[in-house]
Design a binder for these strands. Structure first.
Length: 575
RNA sequence: CGGGGCGUGGCGCAGCCUGGUUUAGCGCACCUGCAUGGGGCGCAGGGGGUCGGAGGUUCAAAUCCUCUCGUCCCGACCA
């Protein structure tokens, strides 16, 4: 310990907000170089290597083969796949001395697809699962939370190549299983969530989310069955969708609603249930550089529009809330008072919740006025009825009907079925058994290594510091002699240390001339799962074993301590 | 990119509003010595700062103004 480079900090650094970030800095595991760029110090790097090793074992178990691809990639390949233009400013671009364009890879579909296309010719060589653990680069709009969202970060990415869809699905399932094993072995509690395939594209996708308050993603899940999804992707059943269906349609009426713009204000002013109101939102849907349209989205007042769903339905590249000038062209009235009743020449998308409302409150298209008793079909057009609703806690599960709950999660892994997306773009073909050339069915599977480490800390810490799961702890055990000047204690501590090392235990000896309190604090902060304390019980021939997690302490005779430690570690690492 | 905060020894901060009385201060860390040894102990001494950078205002700037860079937080984006 006296020679270990682990500069611990007594106080929280000002730059850190989340627990994992603070603790990694304080425990001397990482140091910042620039925004989103970090040094991993010896302790932190040991954790990284542990996680990598677990990943390797599980990838290999599924037939994965490790290789290593360059971080620096020629623009040419990205132009071929079309992503040079699509990826945007997040792609770190640079030029070499001859002015040739390159980028620092945020992912490796282009490289690997090219590699396989050039070297694999026959279905006999499939399926092929290739992976690497590489530094990736993304020029994040906003790096944050330490290594959780960094600009340079370690990622394991595996790519599967299959001859047909069935094979792809098999590979996907194998990876799904491998991912469960990896995260379980890392001591993480996680949920698997249906995700939006998003920019990477493809036909199916799951995210592995570590449950944590500080997670960046909101997820909705069902306790009764296994359903879980990103909020921006979730489907749900609205329990009270027909609450007003039995009513008789009353005549449309315009009422004065001064200054009542938001749903809250309108509902409160008129004394009606928010469920009886309809929100009208205008979006600008951009399809390409010169193709776009304004779309009106209608949704019941107590729900929010899920922009991801809307975007996916429209199939547009970007979706933004429309500017007031744009809205004015298609709808009368000021924002806050626009409604569906007198829209002209605009595409309308309605959520099913709107379809079922009777006698609704909507904007009147005139400042300070709303309509009451508006009825779909009679007073306004529903347009296209599509689920564009953001699911919320209290909705019912689409699979089993139980009540849905909301929590937050850290995305540590993401798996995709890519299908032909990249093999077509990169012209990657093989010859099948029927003698015909076919495109590979691909899948890609990522794990954020640093993020997994941060997530593990978010889930395993207490007021004193990190509580590492044995499987990814930088060391299994620390041996602390209490009195530096006590030769007997130092001697015994050193012996135990040597013996543990001989037995293959990852152990640190705190041989620093420090007060006991300092050593204990540091040990707790760094989070060694086990601590052997050589102190006053030595006069009875005993030393102390303490579990970091439970703070439970037991005395053992010196002769037995090494065996006990070894068996405790084995016990922990077994499942 | 929009909004906000912050840049003062290694770390955490005060001083700034109301310019000069400060030789720029405090806690922690660091070095030396003494003492001590079960939860960041004590005493004595010591080293370390272009006050983020540039320009300006002024007799005088850490302090006021302008620009700039960095960094963190919230939002939109994303594995």
């Amino acid at each position: 310990m006296s020679s270990l480079f682990a500069p611990t900090l007594r106080e929280d650094p000002a730059e850190a907000e989340t627990i994992s970030h603070k603790l990694m800095l304080r425990a001397g595991m990482i140091r910042k170089v620039a925004a989103g760029i970090y040094n991993f110090l010896p302790l932190g790097y040991r954790v990284i290597k542990k996680i990598e090793q677990i990943i390797r074992e599980e990838m290999d178990a599924k037939g994965g083969q490790e290789l290593f691809m360059p971080a620096l990639q020629p623009a040419e390949l990205w132009k071929k796949s079309g992503r040079w233009d699509v990826y945007g400013p997040e792609l770190m671009r640079l030029k070499d001395r001859n002015g040739r364009e390159f980028c620092l890879g945020p992912t490796h579909e282009e490289i690997i697809t090219t590699l396989v296309a050039e070297n694999v010719k026959s279905y006999r060589e499939l399926p092929l699962l290739l992976y690497q653990i590489q530094t990736k680069f993304r020029d994040e709009i906003r790096p944050r939370f330490g290594v959780m969202r960094a600009r340079e970060f370690l990622m394991k990415d595996l790519y599967s190549f299959d001859r047909d869809e069935e094979g792809m699905n098999k590979s996907y399932e194998a990876m799904y299983d491998a991912y469960c094993r990896v995260f379980k072995r890392c001591g993480l509690v996680f949920k698997i969530v249906e995700a939006d395939p998003g920019a990477i594209g493809g036909t199916g996708s799951h995210e592995f989310m570590v449950l944590a308050k500080t997670g960046e993603e909101e997820i909705i899940y069902c306790d009764d069955c296994n359903y879980a999804a990103n909020t921006n992707q979730a489907s749900s059943i609205v329990t009270d969708i027909d609450f007003s269906l039995g009513e008789e349609e009353k005549p449309l009426e315009k009422v004065h609603t001064p200054n009542a713009k938001s749903i809250e204000e309108v509902a409160a002013f008129l004394g009606v249930d928010k469920r009886r109101t309809i929100k009208t939102l205008f979006y600008e849907a951009i399809y390409s550089k010169d193709e776009w349209e304004i779309v009106a989205a209608l949704i019941r007042g107590d729900y929010e529009v899920n922009e991801t769903k809307l975007k996916n339905y429209l199939g547009c590249l970007h979706l933004n809330l429309a500017k007031e000038e744009e809205i004015a062209k298609v709808a009368p009235g000021k924002v806050g008072f626009v409604g569906p009743v007198n829209l002209r020449g605009v595409r309308i998308i309605s959520d099913p919740t709107v379809q079922k409302i009777k006698n609704a409150v909507v904007g009147a298209g005139e400042e300070d006025y709303h309509f009451i008793n508006a009825n779909p079909g009679r007073d306004f057009n529903l347009g296209e009825v599509v689920d564009i609703r953001l699911a919320k806690a209290g909705d019912r599960c689409v699979r089993c009907g139980a009540e849905l709950k909301v929590t937050r999660g850290i995305e540590v892994g993401h798996i995709f079925k890519l299908g032909h997306k990249y093999s077509k773009a990169m012209e990657a073909k093989f010859v099948d058994s029927d003698g015909k050339e076919k495109y590979y069915y691909m899948g890609c599977y990522g794990i954020g290594v640093g993020r997994t480490m941060a997530a593990a800390i978010e889930q395993n810490h207490d007021e004193d510091g990190i509580v590492w799961p044995m499987s990814i702890a930088p060391y299994h055990v620390i041996v602390i002699p209490v009195e530096y000047s006590n030769g007997e204690q130092m001697r015994v501590a050193t012996e135990i240390y040597d013996e543990l090392k001989k037995r293959g235990v990852e152990v640190v000896l705190d041989d620093r001339d420090e007060r006991p309190g300092v050593k204990f604090k540091d040990a707790d902060l760094i989070g060694f799962p086990l601590r052997v304390t050589v102190g006053e019980a030595l006069k009875d021939g005993k030393v102390e074993l303490r579990w970091r997690k439970t703070k439970e302490t037991k005395l053992y005779p010196i002769e037995r301590i090494v065996d006990v430690v070894v068996s405790e570690i084995e016990k922990e690492l077994k499942p």
